[in-house]
Amino acid sequence: MTAIGLPDASGTRFTDYLETHSLPSDQADTRAARDGSVLATLVTHSPVEGGWFRPIDDLVISIVMQSCHSDVVRDIGWGRSSFVEAPGCILVTPPGCKSYWTFGGNPLVLHFSIARERLEALGLDWDSSLSDAGADHLNAPLYDRLVSELASRIWSVLEQPAPLGERFVDHAVATMLTVLLGGHVEDRPASPSRGGSGLPAWRMKKVRSLVAERPGLDLSIEELASSTGLSADHFVKAFSTTMGQTPHQWLSSLRIEEAKKLLRQTDQPLTEIALDLGFSSSAHFSSRFKQLVGMPPSAWRATFRS
């Protein structure tokens, strides 16, 4: 883990964190619109513990493209928010806002840094948008498949900027901002049930430890339940209350995250990846991948290949 000090001087763009090495990262790649008003930076993060980041002048939209399902603590000036980051998690950081972060693992995150002049050109008054959205709205992680899909498309288009591509970026960024800042997000993780009791942290830790020992994720509900000392039925109910999804759904999302890593870092064929991760066929794998990610695995590999 790395602790980050807060420099005195305010920065300008998200990339300043990389240039000054104030942001621990394993890998980073930046693409820009022709006028530089929109920067897209794909970062493989290193863990951060108790890190304060200096303010920058841009609005930053961060989308988790590959998840570690780690516990996150975040503060953008409205109090600390704690959550587990998941695939598709979207976080908005206002311009001129110092931020605090704690998280583990090495999540792959696509950050969009949007200059104030671009916001103004799109007819967006930040102060009024913030007032309309409300602090609570932006303090929490957001989820929206349309925004995640647009983020992937923008990243691809920025690889070779062209006039029509620039026009697409302009409209796509405007749509993203309208959805996120206007509070029009459609997809949110299932809310934990209010009934019954959930898994205490020590039992959830045992589940995660077992999963970490079995990278193939060929685990049964009975094995997960046994690691916590609970019956399968009791475990399923408690897990679903805690996580807002069933153990089966959670394991499926973990398999997709492992698939993303293999797609990005290896040349393994899709069929081989599918079978290694316990899917019945490459068609089943592709269908589930597209359902959770919003694009086929082949398209994801072409877009985010290292």
Rank of each mutant, 00 (worst) to 15 (best):
I4C: 07
G5F: 13
P7S: 00
T12Q: 15
F14G: 02
H21S: 10
H21K: 13
L23P: 06
P24M: 05
D29Y: 14
R34P: 08
R34G: 06
R34H: 11
S37R: 12
L39D: 14
S46G: 15
S46V: 07
F53A: 02
P55V: 03
D58L: 06
I63V: 10
S67W: 04
C68M: 04
V72I: 09
D75E: 13
I76Q: 15
I76L: 12
F83V: 03
E85T: 00
C89W: 08
V92N: 02
T93G: 00
P94D: 05
P94E: 07
P95I: 01
P95A: 05
G105T: 11
V109Q: 10
F112K: 07
G123P: 02
W126H: 09
D136T: 07
D144G: 01
R153T: 07
R153N: 08
S156K: 14
G165H: 10
E166P: 00
F168V: 05
A172V: 08
V173M: 11
T175Y: 01
T178S: 10
L181W: 13
G182P: 12
G183L: 12
V185L: 13
G195R: 15
L199N: 09
L199F: 11
A201Q: 15
S209L: 04
E213P: 11
P215M: 03
G216R: 15
G216S: 07
E223I: 00
S227L: 07
S227E: 14
T241I: 14
M243E: 14
M243H: 05
T246R: 04
A259W: 12
K260H: 10
K260Q: 13
D276I: 01
F285L: 00
K290G: 00
L292M: 03
P296M: 01
A302L: 11
S306P: 04
S306Y: 12
